[in-house]
Computed example of a mutant assay.
Amino acid sequence: MSTLNGQVIGQAHFATRALLDRAVAPLGVDFAQVLALNALTAGPADRTSLVRRLASARRVDESAVHEVIAGLVDAGLARLDDTAEPRVSLTDAGHRTQARVAEAVGGITARLYGDIPPAEADVAARVLTLVTERANDELAGGTAQK
């Protein structure tokens, strides 16, 4: 029986991430770009808000996210408009690439999680969400120790 701790969670994350990296490499995108593509599927986003959200999610400096967005623009997968509050949106090529990413993720998800009983998956999701919330609270200077 495994003990639920950061090492077990991290191993699952890194193993899954390696599968995703391998699946999206032929598409010419990396993990950070996948996150940005996914964030833009709902439609154009204010660049400042998008940068803050992705930087927070990845725990990276905002300059790293600006580089990701620039890479997507350079690759023709996203475009930046030239308004006072610049917005980022997917191009047709970006939508096609994101759809292929979603297909790859769907396949990985089905292979890794497909035979896990729904009740167990629900419990795991609740536990991991709680752990994430507590860690985020501590990172923000809160007191997640309960």
Rank of each mutant, 00 (worst) to 15 (best):
residue 52 R to Y: 06
residue 19 L to V: 03
residue 74 D to F: 07
residue 136 N to W: 13
residue 97 T to R: 08
residue 81 D to N: 10
residue 49 S to T: 15
residue 80 L to W: 02
residue 94 G to P: 05
residue 26 P to I: 03
residue 74 D to W: 04
residue 107 G to C: 03
residue 48 T to C: 07
residue 140 A to C: 04
residue 35 L to G: 11
residue 27 L to T: 03
residue 6 G to M: 00
residue 136 N to I: 11
residue 114 G to D: 15
residue 34 V to N: 09
residue 39 A to H: 14
residue 94 G to M: 05
residue 78 A to Y: 13
residue 123 V to M: 07
residue 112 L to M: 14
residue 49 S to I: 12
residue 142 G to S: 01
residue 45 A to T: 12
residue 73 V to P: 11
residue 118 P to N: 08
residue 59 R to V: 01
residue 131 V to Q: 00
residue 46 D to S: 02
residue 3 T to M: 11
residue 141 G to R: 01
residue 116 I to D: 15
residue 109 T to W: 06
residue 21 D to M: 07
residue 4 L to W: 05
residue 123 V to H: 12
residue 7 Q to F: 03
residue 139 L to M: 12
residue 30 D to N: 05
residue 73 V to Q: 08
residue 54 L to T: 01
residue 135 A to G: 04
residue 11 Q to A: 00
residue 23 A to P: 00
residue 9 I to T: 04
residue 80 L to Y: 03
residue 77 L to Y: 11
residue 109 T to H: 12
residue 123 V to D: 14
residue 88 V to I: 12
residue 45 A to F: 07
residue 67 E to Y: 11
residue 43 G to D: 08
residue 101 V to N: 06
residue 27 L to Y: 12
residue 52 R to M: 04
residue 70 A to M: 09
residue 10 G to Q: 03
residue 65 V to P: 12
residue 36 A to L: 12
residue 9 I to D: 01
residue 9 I to N: 04
residue 89 S to V: 10
residue 41 T to Y: 02
residue 54 L to Q: 01
residue 93 A to K: 09
residue 12 A to W: 08
residue 14 F to W: 11
residue 84 A to H: 09
residue 117 P to N: 10
residue 73 V to I: 13
residue 73 V to W: 06
residue 40 L to K: 12
residue 126 R to E: 14
residue 46 D to P: 07
residue 11 Q to E: 03
residue 9 I to Y: 05
residue 31 F to A: 09
residue 63 S to I: 04
residue 56 S to T: 04
residue 42 A to G: 15
residue 130 L to Y: 04
residue 124 A to H: 06
residue 117 P to C: 08
residue 23 A to V: 01
residue 36 A to E: 11
residue 71 G to D: 14
residue 24 V to L: 10
residue 15 A to W: 03
residue 49 S to A: 14
residue 23 A to T: 03
residue 86 P to I: 07
residue 108 I to H: 12
residue 8 V to Q: 04
residue 22 R to E: 15
residue 69 I to R: 04
residue 132 T to H: 08
residue 2 S to P: 08
residue 95 H to Y: 05
residue 40 L to W: 11
residue 58 R to W: 01
residue 145 Q to N: 13
residue 103 E to F: 06
residue 21 D to E: 15
residue 99 A to H: 10
residue 95 H to C: 06
residue 125 A to G: 14
residue 58 R to E: 01
residue 8 V to K: 04
residue 78 A to K: 10
residue 74 D to R: 11
residue 130 L to D: 15
residue 35 L to P: 03
residue 99 A to N: 14
residue 38 N to G: 12
residue 127 V to R: 05
residue 14 F to E: 14
residue 132 T to C: 07
residue 42 A to H: 05
residue 106 G to Y: 10
residue 81 D to K: 04
residue 62 E to D: 06
residue 133 E to G: 13
residue 47 R to M: 13
residue 26 P to E: 09
residue 120 E to F: 10
